[in-house]
């Protein structure tokens, strides 16, 4: 993953400084926009059961499945961007169950 970046348009910016025409003047800014707190449930990754089939990585709509450096193994979930859709849990093969879910209420008790 690339380095953390700042949003090009900051909260509180006024009409004199925002980019004209409402454009977003650079790419990949979704990374700087934290959407993790939209979640009510979260996926939990169990490395001991994971076979690294990459189904979850392929299906995740928010690019929140974290891989190792050479991109061959699943190492966890990016909870700053995961919106808790649980598609990863759904596509994780039945016999594997390397991804399960837990409510954020429950998760908060353990945090």
């Amino acid at each position: 993953m690339s380095e953390k970046r700042a949003m090009p348009i900051k909260k509180g910016d006024g009409w004199k400084t925002i980019p004209i025409g409402g454009i977003i003047p650079e790419g990949g800014t979704a990374e700087a926009f934290k959407t993790g707190d939209w979640r009510t449930v979260r996926p939990v990754h169990h490395p001991d059961r994971c076979i690294h089939c990459m189904q979850c990585w392929a299906y995740c709509p928010d690019m929140s499945i974290q891989l190792n450096e050479d991109g061959t193994k699943v190492i966890g979930i990016d909870l700053e961007h995961c919106k808790g859709c649980l598609l990863c849990v759904k596509v994780c093969p039945d016999k594997v169950e390397a991804l399960t879910s837990i409510s954020e209420t429950e998760a908060a008790k353990n945090d």
């Binding site: 348009i9 909260k11 910016d13 006024g14 009409w15 004199k16 925002i18 980019p19 004209i20 025409g21 409402g22 454009i23 977003i24 003047p25 650079e26 790419g27 800014t29």
Partner: peptide
């Protein structure tokens, strides 16, 4: 800025809600 400038990518026509739409209209 233009959409086909691949070295300087931009998004055209994104959402601007309560916190930015007004500023765009005043500009």
């Amino acid at each position: 800025r233009n959409l086909l400038d691949v070295d300087n990518p931009i998004t055209v026509g994104p959402l601007a809600l309560q916190d930015f739409y007004f500023e765009h209209k005043v500009e």
